[in-house]
Simulated scan of single mutants.
Amino acid sequence: MSGDLEAALTAGRAAALELMRETVTILAPSEPDFDWDTGTETTAPMVTLYSGPARVKPDREASGREVDAGETNVSLHGYLVSLPWSTSGTRPPVGSQVRVDSSPEARMAGLRLWVTGVRYGSTATAWRITAEDRS
Rank of each mutant, 00 (worst) to 15 (best):
S2L: 12
D4G: 05
D4M: 09
L5T: 11
T10R: 11
T10W: 03
T10A: 11
G12P: 00
A14V: 11
A14F: 01
A16E: 15
E18P: 00
E18L: 14
L19Y: 03
R21W: 02
E22R: 04
T23E: 15
V24N: 12
P29T: 09
P29K: 14
E31S: 08
F34K: 06
D35H: 03
W36N: 02
D37V: 06
D37Q: 14
D37P: 02
G39V: 08
E41A: 10
T42R: 13
A44S: 14
P45V: 15
L49M: 06
S51P: 00
S51C: 01
G52Q: 09
R55P: 00
V56K: 12
R60Q: 06
A62D: 11
R65K: 10
R65D: 01
E66F: 01
E66S: 15
D68A: 13
D68L: 15
T72K: 08
N73K: 08
S75G: 02
L76A: 06
G78F: 07
V81E: 07
L83C: 09
W85L: 09
W85M: 12
S86Y: 00
S86V: 14
T87C: 02
T87M: 08
S88R: 09
T90E: 12
R91E: 06
R91S: 02
P93E: 14
P93V: 13
V94P: 00
V94D: 04
G95K: 08
S96I: 02
Q97S: 05
Q97L: 11
V98N: 12
V100Y: 08
E105D: 15
M108K: 11
A109S: 13
A109Q: 08
G110C: 09
L111P: 01
L113P: 11
W114V: 13
G117Q: 01
R119E: 12
R119V: 07
R119I: 08
Y120E: 12
S122D: 14
S122H: 04
S122K: 10
A124E: 10
R128W: 06
R128F: 01
T130G: 01
T130H: 04
D133S: 13
D133N: 10
S135R: 15
S135F: 07
